[in-house]
Simulated scan of single mutants.
Amino acid sequence: MIIDGKAIAEDLYKGLSKRREMLNKKLKLGIIIGGVNPVIESFVRIKTRAAERLNVEMVRIDLPAGADTATAIEAIEELAKRTDAIIVQLPLPKEIDTHISLAAIPKEKDVDAINPTIPDNEHPVFAPVALAVVEILRRTGVNPRAKRTVVVGAGRLVGSPSAVLLKRLGANVSLFTLEEGAIEDLKDADIVVLGVGKPGYIKPQHIKTGVALVDAGTTEISGILQGDADPSCAEKAHVFTPVPGGVGPIAVAMIFKNLFDLVEKK
């Protein structure tokens, strides 16, 4: 089953549009961007279009060339005053300390649940990609409880938050990273979540027949987005998310779910 992420996202937007009408107030979502990167701009355009359809104003700050960590923190603090929630578009330029910058996002405005100084159980929302992973499993009838689950990669956007949320839902989760686990672990997994950023890294021989394979890895090569799974894995998997068009559109919709959740919790 190849997942149509755009169709799922469209269904989510129907519910989000109704929630937006009920909020009945002006909403602003801040976004900070560092450097010039066509892939990042593509992601930002997608988020901006989603904001427009939900009547959310995007407030954008582009960090100047050569910006340092202090400049990034100042931008975050400014948006915290002006907006209802904040996105720090990653990656940031190498001159900026990402950890310190993300730590400046107020908990109540952290739409990506990405502030590294806040314990997992204290974030008021879950990371959008993790929510997208769980939404895909839910819509395909895959209950994570007691399922052998391997998360490939432990990054702050995909691997780490997906592992946390799936554990909360009762999955038996293990990580495969440079520091722990092995690619052989995937052979016995009922659910595999990919977020390592290595195009075509996972091949059909690495997975078992009938696995739910959720590919949230995204790498741009010569202007083309590619996932961590070889597309031929779709022939073996029960659930397979293509890149692009799989997890991405759903994760963007979840940003706005989180925005509305944060606003409602105030």
Results as ranks from 00 to 15, higher is better:
169 L>R: 11
12 L>Y: 05
210 G>E: 05
122 E>K: 07
64 P>F: 07
18 K>C: 03
22 M>H: 12
28 K>A: 09
50 A>K: 11
229 A>M: 05
223 G>P: 07
233 C>I: 07
61 I>F: 07
71 T>F: 07
167 K>V: 03
10 E>T: 11
252 V>R: 13
207 I>K: 00
44 V>T: 14
247 V>T: 12
23 L>S: 11
34 G>N: 08
239 V>Q: 13
263 V>T: 04
100 I>L: 07
149 T>H: 00
4 D>Q: 10
47 K>A: 06
265 K>T: 11
234 A>C: 05
207 I>A: 01
137 L>T: 10
203 K>W: 00
96 I>W: 02
140 T>E: 01
248 G>R: 14
44 V>P: 10
80 A>G: 07
140 T>W: 00
39 V>I: 09
5 G>R: 09
225 L>K: 15
246 G>D: 03
33 I>G: 04
20 R>T: 04
233 C>E: 06
21 E>K: 15
213 L>D: 06
60 R>M: 10
7 A>Q: 07
132 A>G: 12
29 L>K: 05
115 N>Y: 03
50 A>M: 12
19 R>A: 00
81 K>E: 10
247 V>W: 10
26 K>R: 15
4 D>G: 10
26 K>D: 11
195 G>S: 09
35 G>L: 05
190 D>M: 02
78 E>R: 15
17 S>K: 14
205 Q>C: 13
78 E>G: 14
67 A>W: 04
